[in-house]
Write a protein that binds this DNA or RNA. Structure first.
Lengths: 336, 336
DNA sequence: TGTCATAACTTAATCGTTTTCGTAGTTTTA
DNA sequence: TAAAACTACGAAAACGATTAAGTTATGACA
């Protein structure tokens, strides 16, 4: 509640001097600074970010747009882990993160861009959203520094998980285990899905594997219901696969249920693999073989890039950065 | 980028008129308003929250302190669900949420209270933290409107999940299924744990169940390692329980692994129950019998209370609100 | 015709900081 | 010893918005 003015009165100096003293400018005497700092502490002075932002045009605030199907990215294992890492990193640089309002029902709501301007975000990070939404495009095309995660735009910094490499290594690992009849239940269409699927086909080809069309099926991410069904359909094929890849670890749970219900055992009767490396999959038997996306790194790199873009716009390269994942060898793929 | 001044120049009216027109005050002519709104739209005008906050002393910002052991509450299933609901609710009232910086390593960092004052939060919500931390106490005792979740302070609004009722109903359900030798692996000491444990003892007594001391064991929340071990120890007892309660669903996974490793089946050989009702537990077989905490309601009520406290401080009751959970009947408790 | 409301503005202060440009007073330099 | 340089501080404007208080012009009313 105490302001610079209060301090200046007590110290008998001008407001300017107090401001400069507390910001450690060089043109204030050392003992004056000391005195001012002491009084400031006694008064419990705390600067006012609004006033500062108004004057300096820097809020040290970063807008976060994380929305998934359910209108929120917070309960999404993968994205919340990325966000967590992002948050920790920007906080080290003195930034705070604020969510860009995404409740679209509200009358008189602001668009993402309007909201970002209103709050004066120094930069924004986007992930887990519908990147074809006109509002998103508008925000990305604006003059606000932006970093996107798991989606790339021209002339904008983007950080993506290496889906191509991830699927390749996973498939190579499974192939090394002796499998060649491998099915892939992939996620709903998106850039991520396209990359993974292409990589799947290419790698299969390179490894000399023949993948029948009926082995490639679509489900949705984190949708156990569809994977349950499709798994049953795959197992009912006259020539069923020996290993099934799922859209992600969570979706794999649906498959696990289907398999267990038939009295089959993982991995002795059928092998499976997930994607993501979520916590639950690490702690349940059979420990899921999966590709662990480096959420720590993705969030951290996105944060560093954004801060760099904000603070050193001229010297920051606009680049697309790929963060590779790692195959986690669980016990869900049999060596045959 | 356009300000009221820019609009006022174009419209040939004063800045005050523009401000009042855009805020729909009554002392501006209808056609003037119309014109001003039109020009504002053309210029892509967006108000500046910093300037507004500076003048009105209201930021429409809410500080969130969600920290768990790992210095983050974001990857915590239960709390991220609560936060998600909280966020959606306050957004409806026009508030944005910002995380209170919790990285304690930073030199020259602000305390939680300092940070909250710096950002001028209209209110703060606390959850999932060490409520004995002096910094937390300082924040709670300050004049900033505060709501705590799953912990209660005198003279401060608190919203808690009904742990007493939850455990009671769960135990009654299990008792109804025919169990009387029930073990409880509880979480690390905390207010939540104390409530659950007391409720466990009391309910057991009321139901006429004898609970041997060796049936009550301590683990940590979300710690599969300890539950794995302790489950084994319980099963090795000369007179093992027929049902084991775990600190939470996630921790139950450790127990599930121990049980399966011994070739035992759930629930025919041993019954188990969790707590929380996390997503993963709903989608895995055997579907876990658990107490689903109403995260939606907890977050929503906390949000409404906080907004009320901010906007109508005089008429808002300082109360402690308990949100009841619900026993979810899975397939992990045998009827015997 | 003079008085009074009312409608529709404007003026000017203010919120808390930052920052540029001074300006004294002191010390160094030539 | 006079000019130059440096030190330590202050005055004042500015950031963008809000708002209390004042000012016209217009019309109503007696």
């Amino acid at each position: 509640m105490a302001s610079l003015k209060d301090i200046s009165k007590i110290c008998g100096v001008s407001v300017a001097t107090v401001s400069k003293a507390l910001n450690n400018h060089t043109d204030i005497g050392e003992e004056t600074k000391e005195y001012i700092r002491k009084v400031a502490k006694e008064l419990g002075y705390s600067p006012n970010s609004s006033a500062r932002a108004l004057k300096t045009r820097r809020t040290y605030g970063i807008g976060v747009l994380f929305v998934d199907e359910a209108m929120s990215g917070l309960t999404h294992d993968y994205f919340s882990a990325v966000l967590d890492s992002f948050k920790r990193t920007v906080e080290k640089f003195g930034y705070d993160i604020t969510f860009i309002n995404c409740c679209k029902e509200r009358e008189n709501r602001m668009s993402y861009l309007e909201h970002s301007r209103y709050r004066g975000f120094d930069g924004v990070v986007l992930a887990c959203i519908d990147f074809h939404d006109p509002e998103v495009i508008e925000l990305v095309q604006s003059d606000i520094p932006v970093v996107t995660i798991d989606h790339l735009f021209n002339d904008r910094i983007g950080v993506v998980s290496d889906n191509v490499g991830g699927i390749r290594e996973l498939l190579e690992y499974i192939h090394d285990c002796g499998h060649s009849r491998i099915a892939y239940i992939h996620g709903a269409p998106s850039a991520v899905t396209t990359n993974r699927l292409s990589s799947f086909y290419r790698t299969a080809e390179q490894l000399g594997m023949e993948i029948p069309d009926e082995y490639i099926r679509e489900a949705a991410y984190r949708d156990t219901h569809t994977t349950y069904q499709v798994t049953n359909e795959l197992l009912d094929l006259p020539d069923p696969p020996t290993c099934i890849l799922y859209p992600d670890d969570f979706a794999a749970f649906g498959g696990i249920n289907a398999i267990r219900e038939r009295g089959l055992r993982i991995p002795s009767d059928i092998s499976i693999a997930g994607y993501d490396g979520i916590r639950a999959a690490r702690h349940l038997e059979p420990k899921l073989t999966t590709v662990r996306q480096d959420t720590e790194q993705i969030g951290c790199v996105a944060a560093r890039q954004l801060v760099s873009l904000i603070e050193r716009p001229k010297s920051t390269l606009i680049e697309h950065i790929t963060i590779s994942g790692r195959v986690i060898e669980g016990r869900s793929v049999a060596k045959i």
